[in-house]
Amino acid sequence: MTEEAADLFAMACGFFDREVPANRAKWETQRHVDRSFWRKCGELGLLCASVPAAYGGGDGNFLHQATIQEAYARLGDRSWGNTIHSGVVADYLAAYGTEEQRLRWLPRMATGELIGALAMTEPSTGSDLKAIRTSAVRTDAGWRINGTKIFITNGGSADLVLVACSTDPSKGAKGISLIVVETKDAVGFARGKVLDKIGQHGADTTELFFDDVVVPHDNLLGEEGKGFAIMMGKLPQERLMIGITAVNAMELAVAVTTEYVKQRHAFGGPLLDKQHIRFELAECATLAKVARVFLNDCMETHLSTGLDLTTSSMCKWWLTDVQCQVIDRCLQLHGGYGYMTEYPIARLYADARAQRIYGGTNEIQKELIARSL
């Protein structure tokens, strides 16, 4: 943590501490974060932190993006889709976009005028991205896109969607391309209802439909047929982002549970007086500490030499598995109150489960690790 990043962290924490608790219930009810919140984040420089200043970004690196996510994740909220907006979509555009594409989209993403989404998952295609069926056919008018995407973060609000398409089905993974769809006035583009999830209720997650949607030829991101390679190349960073959320969630779970068992009395005294309670918390606190050390090591490696795919898979599966274990044990220490959504531990529990699924299921991560042995 550099001095500059520390200042950014302090500023971001102050803003999120004011805005997130005050709006969380509203976001969860309406199933999305207000556009005004995105605009405020843009005004403070909390969007596109690692994008060069020439394109309206913060001119930082992954440390700055991770710092902002850390400041947000420590509150235990999972509504704001900035990890996709800034950490994925903007990063893809900055790294692989043409100069015209960067100047066209990134400045407005940095202000919050445009919200970004990445459309990979399909009803019959989850972790197996090579099996993508959404097609994009080159025509005289442009790329003609047909298909359905599901579980898309920011899908209901997105103005800019990176769509993973099959541009040459005969080539498998080498026939997958990324094409940018600007949703405003896009004929043939439609959104399904916001999906009703177990947790992460404030997160805008929807199904997207493409029925002969035509976009210009120059909306292709990178080279044709390189989409799968682009997505794979950025996976270590995406898995690190998931790890940041996991570690902050388990640290928060230990903190709120410790406070609860100090105040909750049973059998003649505070729960914390009971040896079993103390031992459970001691184990959970240790797991959270080990997780933090592992995450920091992965962060340092990524910032210096770049995190390899195998270690990023270890980071993703282990941290999210431990997240669920720690939060489950902490919920148990709350007794019946742990099952009530008014308590933070209940929301942490419901929000945690998806962490082991998105970003590539944990079973896929273990398979990838095994292949490297």
Rank of each mutant, 00 (worst) to 15 (best):
E4T: 09
A5C: 03
M11V: 04
G14D: 15
F16V: 10
R31W: 08
H32W: 12
H32P: 08
D34L: 13
R39N: 04
R39T: 09
L44H: 10
C48F: 00
S50C: 10
S50R: 05
A53P: 00
A54H: 00
G60M: 11
F62P: 00
L63I: 01
R74P: 02
D77H: 06
N82E: 14
I84P: 02
L93N: 01
W105N: 00
M109H: 04
E113D: 15
G116Q: 04
T121S: 06
K130Y: 14
T134P: 03
R144N: 15
N146H: 09
G147S: 02
T148S: 11
I150L: 03
L160V: 13
A164R: 02
F189R: 03
K193N: 13
L195K: 14
K197R: 15
H201G: 10
D204E: 14
T206H: 10
P216V: 09
V254K: 02
K274M: 07
H276W: 06
I277Y: 06
R278C: 04
F279W: 07
E283D: 11
T286E: 15
A288H: 05
A291H: 01
L303F: 14
T305F: 10
S313R: 04
I327N: 02
M340G: 02
A346R: 14
Y349E: 09
A350L: 14
A352C: 13
A352Y: 07
I357S: 08
I364L: 13
